[in-house]
Write a protein that binds this DNA or RNA. Structure first.
Ligand code: MN
Ligand code: MN
Ligand code: ZN
Ligand code: ZN
Lengths: 134, 134
DNA sequence: GAGATAAAGGAAAAAAATTATCTTTTATAT
DNA sequence: ATATAAAAGATAATTTTTTTCCTTTATCTC
């Protein structure tokens, strides 16, 4: 269990109980939607405002604290920023898991005659997860 | 210049002037946002409803006529469905262009111990386009 | 081509998602 | 302990998307 107090302060963000709870939930669940996050937060703070969720997710996005994962045919999920990685999304149950893809190798094998200077890649694989196959 | 009358009918969709105009705009501009599409449509149909745009884009998505491209840090764009491909998005001007990535090769080089059955991939590269480099 | 009809368009309202405003509370520095 | 700027909560406002309801029209059949 990580404590994000210092990390928040390093970004000049006050380490409020609400923010620490958000980071805890992200840390525990990995990839969460706004609604899920709100529901979880309501358990701890029965009068928390949805606006607080949005304001915090947005300020954490600005500070590169949190990343948005855009998923084909469904809503975005959010996660704590970690090393660069890609995602697997289950078509059946919606579960999102991390996967490491050799982006560099891909770029070497991709014909880029367009002279586009690539800086980053967002890769989301879709399919059926291990659990849903059974 | 393509005519989408038949394709629409094959999906049991009436070939209305509005729909043909939408396919024309998609065909001409490649990747368009809802707002852009609406503005363009207003030129031809000065009383078109935004609801018509949404209803048609949604029905075309359902029929796999049109695809949504989700882009990190910006709004989605829509395009006519064609052969499988990926995208380059310019951080500077927002331009979206197609690129072909050897997905199969990537999968071979990606360690998938998670036993996830991958069916498709959504790949969006971000960077600086040729024009914006000058 | 005229008539029948189900689908689609337009206008407006409703719903859902997100952001802004304003007052109260609180984390943090002194 | 106090001061203060930032954040929370409540609410309103805005933006985005969907729904409803009535009118129009594309298409089928004759
Ligand atoms: Mn992840
Ligand atoms: Mn494309
Ligand atoms: Zn699954
Ligand atoms: Zn550019």
């Amino acid at each position: 269990m990580n404590n994000y107090t210092e990390l928040l302060r390093q970004h000049n963000l006050k380490a409020t109980p609400q923010r620490l709870a958000i980071t805890d939930i992200l840390n525990m669940h990995g990839h969460v939607s706004i609604e899920f996050l709100y529901e979880q937060m309501l358990n701890k703070f029965n009068s928390i405002s949805l606006a607080t969720i949005y304001k915090n997710i947005n300020i954490m996005l600005e500070n590169a604290f949190v990343q948005e994962v855009k998923i084909p045919h469904s809503k975005s999920v959010y996660e704590l920023t970690k090393e660069v990685h890609s995602h697997l999304v289950c078509d059946n149950c919606g579960a999102v898991q991390d996967i490491t893809v050799p982006i560099h190798t891909i770029l070497e094998q991709t014909d880029n005659t367009q002279e586009f200077e690539i800086k980053s890649a967002s890769v989301v694989f879709t399919g059926i997860c291990k659990e849903c196959k059974n």
